[in-house]
Nucleic acid binder design. Structure first.
Lengths: 215, 215
DNA sequence: TGTAATGTTTACCAGTCGGTCAAATTATCC
DNA sequence: GGATAATTTGACCGACTGGTAAACATTACA
């Protein structure tokens, strides 16, 4: 009898482990480009090198695949913000947050696009995660930033919009990569663009947030 | 005989004018949410309140609809950057560019998402526009910014990444609106967020680009 | 080694997809 | 008002969609 469909048994088989991994890897490829609606199980099956029914043996529906993928990626995705240290030096915390986010945009562009696609299309599958864990984490870090501003360690500013602007500027290099490449042109298209971006963004945010001499 | 299919006749009928308008309006609704692949002609027909074959009478294919929509929207979309004045005051030019882009994010979020979806999915339909008109325009304005920096009117910085960062921060409020709303929560979700964003971004970019006193 | 559980495939289904066609309806202009 | 062109519709097509059923193959384990 083949009803297990993964996780029905207490312990996951080695084969389950491997195949689910393979499927989610392929799913990431496909969903990150075409979004949920625009992706098909057949495409994912093709990329994974497996048959469609075989995919559906491990994940009962297309939605289950998407969900599993989101769940797996979300935690990692929030890691840089979680690492934001209230007791650290404000300037270097912001600097390294930007660095880290930019590194993720460079090293995990598919993950970035997966969320971008999802949010762009109204976040029908991750609304709860946004209003729950994400909001909570941002609220917490916003408090930290606010206290820094109050203590005169950085310029007074809206912490939420600061976080939004760091998100958008860094993820831009993953989500809109084609556009960035098109505008920069062949010559500058080497991966040096990430270094250039890092330099620019650090300058922008550090100088932009420096406390101004009382005028 | 009904072969006209719009624009075959020299002059467009009033009815053609109206219906094409109606269709593109509906197409914008649908494409901006689901992207090209994820959208269906039936959806567009539904929104437009017309029958599917009727839509296909005005636009032979789904791609033709998408193309017509892109063509129509692209010019307007680049207006703010085009208005960037080489002879103006750098600070106020940057300030008003940010304002204008933010206003567009607020007033034309669908247009923003249309492009975001397209670029995110690899820009298969607008590659030429990106490498041509867009790149040319950006190159031109980048020169302007570079000359400002050289003249000591603003801090030295990479002009391309400056433009990218203005794009990303402003469009973020259109493309990732659901996320912004989720994080800000009900209480702050009024349209005041655009004013807050404007204040923050102007502070960030103006202070971030101010020439630093020789250290 | 046998056998039960797990994994894989082929064939298939009903619904949806982009798009066509011919017939019916409406607008235009003399 | 009638002829002619422009517009709209319903019926339909083959390809693809997410998903199922059952037969078949493989693995794990006593």
């Amino acid at each position: 009898m083949a009803i297990p469909r993964a996780a029905k048994t207490q312990r996951r088989t080695r084969i389950q482990e491997e195949k689910e991994e393979k499927i989610l890897e392929a799913a990431l490829d496909v969903f990150s480009v075409s979004g949920f609606r625009g992706s098909t199980i057949d495409q994912i099956a093709d990329v994974a090198g497996m048959s469609k029914p075989n995919l559906l043996y491990y994940f009962r529906t297309k939605e289950a695949m998407h969900r599993a993928l989101i769940d797996r990626v979300l935690f990692t995705w929030l890691e840089p913000l979680r690492a934001f240290d209230a007791n650290g030096n404000p300037e270097s915390e912001i600097r390294s947050y930007i660095r880290r986010k930019l590194e993720m945009a460079r090293d995990f562009p598919r993950e970035s696009r997966l969320f971008a696609n999802e949010v762009l299309q109204g976040a029908p599958h991750i609304e709860d995660e946004l209003k729950g864990p994400l909001k909570d984490l941002v609220d917490e870090k916003a408090e930290v930033i606010k206290s820094w501003a109050k203590a005169g360690k950085i310029a007074k500013c809206d912490p939420y919009h600061l976080i939004f602007s760091i998100w958008s500027t860094t993820q831009h290099y993953a989500d809109f990569d084609v556009q960035v490449l098109a505008v920069l042109g062949q010559e500058q298209a080497g991966s040096g663009r990430f270094e250039d971006a890092a330099r620019f963004l650090e300058q922008l945010f550090i100088d932009g947030l420096r406390v101004k001499p009382a005028s």
